[in-house]
Design a protein around this nucleic acid. Sequence first.
DNA 1: CTTCGGGA
DNA 2: TCCCGAAGG
Length: 349
Amino acid sequence: MGVKITPLVQEEKKIITFENLVGKKIAIDAFNTLYQFLAIIRGVDGSPLKDYSGEVTSHLSGLFYRTINIVEKDIQPIFVFDGLPNPLKMEEIERRRTIRKDATKRMHEAQDLGREEEAANFAQASSKLTSEMIAESKDFIKAMGIPIIQAKQDGEAQAAYLVKQNYAWAVGSQDYDALLFGAPRVVRNLSQNRTKKVKSTTVKVDLEWLSLAKILQSNELTQEQLVDIGILTGVDFFPGIEGVGAKTAYKLIKSHHSIDSLMNNNIEIRKKPISESLNMDMVNQVRNIFLKPEIDPNIPPLKWKKPNQDKIFEILCEKHNFNKERVTTALNRLKKKAGSTQRTLGDFF
DNA sequence: CTTCGGGA
DNA sequence: TCCCGAAGG
């Protein structure tokens, strides 16, 4: 999931802090964030947090506490939700569905055999975001007083548009797809940057910032070429060419300038003529998704309001059994900041 | 992931 | 007060 162009952006990653984002609006990819919470927020046995009726609540817990942290740091989040998927994404969606089904099966098998760690790992990959969860998340975000933008199709495309048009300063996402959609800036790891455990060792996860212009400049690429590299390595709308990663794709595009040229010369990639893997019709369709994305150009006024306390208690405590004292403590932090219009401080960037 | 709380 | 393991739902 997501375009794999890490080697191309590695050099241009800049580690920042929350202070560097004070007063800035960040268009957060909501689906990306919700899936992250579902995969990560889990009990010791690997199962997600659930209310008494067995409904998953990990995403609400994540949304609540993280959004409060962001707002408390004088950053203005905007949650951008995916619309209907592009038809070319269906294959990828089906692929993910299969992975989820398989993971669910393996999780149950591991549970039956008492292999807890294994079960926990498969549990992570089996999490699903249902339409009910999406709808409730939207209600909940609104109750927190945070604006929501509904994308026509891809949330990353809409979020990229918000940044291009200066409605927001950066896209917040773990994926690099927004860069292919032309987002001038992307912020990753928008969380309390501390340490996280990866197989008994702890790694530092830094808040980082990427500039599209700098990435294109340092790699001497055009936006069109970056998209072509994405197509060769694989994106949500096209699987790419087997065995071709970012580095290979980069070399191919640098030496031939475009996929058209690779096709015209019918270049061999891993002992196979490229024409067996690609056709220009498909390539142009995928290029269009990134270069001329389906977005909603009409952006309603973005407003950060005071939280609707009753609604938050209703969703979290009454409906989903969150501890009222904990929620109150966090809510008080939110109330202190929300609705106040902070001026942009400094000009770090 | 984020918060909480108890021991150093 | 800091740190780290456990809990949260």
